[in-house]
Amino acid sequence: MLLELFPYLSALLIEEVERQPDKVVLRTRVRSATGTCRCGQSSAQVHGRYVRRLRDVAVGGLGVVIELCVRRFRCENPACTAVTFAEQIAD
């Protein structure tokens, strides 16, 4: 049902939906187990996490907030200058 309303969230796992008086909060994370650095190296070594809060269009008169838990990975390429990178979501 939620993916019918929000098809662009298909790359995310919706872990919790909370209805508040004035909005709906979707707590999400990326489905994939790894991230890819800008150098092209894939990594599963998580360095940390943080939450991004994104506002979306209203549904049924309620505001929508997407709380996205984003992981930071360590780049395993010794030649890469990035050292760590945040995972990116396609589309």
Rank of each mutant, 00 (worst) to 15 (best):
R74E: 14
A33F: 11
D91P: 10
G48C: 04
R49Q: 15
P78K: 14
D91H: 10
V57K: 07
R38F: 02
R55S: 13
I89D: 09
A58D: 11
E67I: 12
V57T: 10
F73A: 01
R55L: 09
G63D: 12
A11N: 08
E15L: 06
C80I: 08
C69S: 11
S43C: 11
V24F: 04
L26V: 02
R29T: 13
V30R: 14
I66S: 00
L12F: 07
F85N: 10
T28N: 00
S42Y: 00
G60C: 07
G61F: 03
L5I: 15
R29L: 03
T81E: 15
G48K: 02
P7K: 05
R29I: 01
L54M: 08
C80E: 12
A90D: 14
G61W: 01
C37E: 11
E15P: 05
R27E: 02
A90H: 12
R27V: 06
G63K: 09
R29N: 05
L13C: 08
C80G: 08
L12M: 12
I14S: 03
M1E: 07
A90G: 14
A44P: 00
L9M: 14
E67Y: 05
R74F: 15
P21M: 01
G48I: 02
V57Y: 01
L26W: 02
V51K: 11
A82C: 08
N77I: 04
P7L: 14
C75F: 08
E67N: 05
L5S: 06
R53F: 04
L3N: 09
V64N: 01
G48H: 00
T34K: 10
L12C: 07
E4H: 09
L3S: 05
V24W: 09
N77E: 15
A11R: 03
T28Y: 13
A44K: 05
E16Y: 01
F73G: 02
L26T: 08
D56N: 01
D91V: 10
E18R: 08
L26K: 03
D56W: 01
A86L: 00
Y50M: 07
R53V: 10
A44H: 07
F73L: 13
E76L: 15
